[in-house]
């Protein structure tokens, strides 16, 4: 398998000046403080993967993206993306990547969106046929044609974000970084973005998404990386994550044939909700078959249902459990 991103033990610190409290004169002498934004983070992303990066505010997500896009250089560790050192070989590397910062635009505010896209057509060296073909494809997902000739400053925030996304994707980059891409996007546009990322996966193109929106990750990614306080806590595929999350068995029964065995099953469950002849059991994925077999032999089953938690809930529970240790 081709590796598109390989980062080994990367660390990055920032120096900040902190104002001192306690009087006017103390405030005039700010204190210098070093913050370690990333601590020995390693990761590998294979070609065609879509990886979601999540974490609380200040966990190092955006710093990671800036390092991987060559905007800043690591204090320590090595990065190789598409065969390039992003910082040292930035001018060659960035031809092959697309980056969208949800909160930073680079569109002409006075001019229609189309004219900003025209600038990027030239920046990425696309001929007119390639430009129109790519724009047609992106329009299927982001529907920008209806407002293509409107001045950017007259667009709604969501339209502007879609315009920004199109400007970043115009050259069909092999590697795409989306930093908070769906800020300001409505539900339909967010779903379209997820569809586009899935489309990229089908084309063997790699995408890295930094977001707080777990739904977007659930809809579009096959792997999740959780950062916390600059460290990588989780790096796991969503399917593996789903296997590790317990399942809910909902059971309605008429009579118990083997009371002691029945009570033993309930006692071994992770949690039990019981009301008359209606029981909800939380059992580990590995124990699922064994528990179902035991239940059907211990009682007269009227209805048995196994509920899989939604991927969104799986991610949420997984992150919560991991952070709690």
């Amino acid at each position: 398998m081709v590796i598109d991103i390989r980062a080994c033990n990367i660390s990055r610190t920032y120096k900040i000046k902190e104002q001192r409290s306690g009087g006017f004169f103390r405030g005039l002498r700010p204190r210098s403080k070093t913050i370690q934004a990333l601590k020995n983070v390693s990761m590998t992303v294979y070609r065609g993967e879509a990886v979601g990066i999540v974490g609380l505010n200040g966990s190092g997500k955006s710093t990671l993206v800036k390092l991987l896009t060559g905007i800043i250089k690591p204090d320590q560790g090595t990065i190789n993306c598409l065969g390039y050192d992003p910082f040292r070989q930035r001018s060659r590397y960035v031809t092959n990547i697309g980056v969208s910062f949800g909160q930073k635009t680079l569109l002409y505010s006075d001019l229609p969106l189309r004219w900003s896209l025209e600038l990027y057509r030239v920046v990425y060296g696309l001929n007119r046929d390639q430009f129109e073909a790519n724009l047609d494809l992106l329009d299927v997902f982001f529907e920008v044609r209806p407002f293509l000739m409107q001045p950017v400053r007259k667009l709604s925030f969501g339209q502007r974000v879609r315009g920004d996304l199109v400007a970043s994707l115009l050259h069909s980059p092999q590697l795409l970084f989306l930093d908070e891409p769906n800020i300001g996007l409505d539900i339909l546009s967010s779903e379209s973005l997820a569809k586009y990322v899935r489309y990229r996966r089908s084309q063997g193109k790699t995408t890295l998404i930094v977001t707080h929106d777990i739904e977007l990750i659930a809809q579009s990614c096959d792997r999740l990386i959780l950062l916390d306080d600059g460290k990588k806590l989780i790096d796991q595929s969503l399917s593996a994550m789903k296997l590790e999350v317990p399942r809910v068995i909902e059971l309605i029964y008429s009579q118990v044939r083997a009371p002691s065995k029945f009570e033993a099953i309930l006692a071994n469950a992770l949690s039990v909700e019981r009301e008359d002849h209606h029981i909800k059991l939380l059992v580990a994925q590995n124990d699922l078959d064994k528990v179902i077999q035991a239940l059907t032999s211990a009682c007269q089953v009227l209805r048995l249902e196994i509920k899989s938690p939604s991927i969104k809930n799986v991610i949420h529970d997984f992150i919560t459990q991991t952070r709690l240790g």
Binding site: I71, V94, V123
Partner: peptide
């Protein structure tokens, strides 16, 4: 203010892009 980021990620000299725009 960090807006240089959006110029650094394009395959032309960031300064040329700033001036052109």
């Amino acid at each position: 203010n960090g807006r240089l980021d959006v110029y650094l990620i394009r395959p032309v000299d960031p300064r040329a892009l700033v001036f052109a725009m």
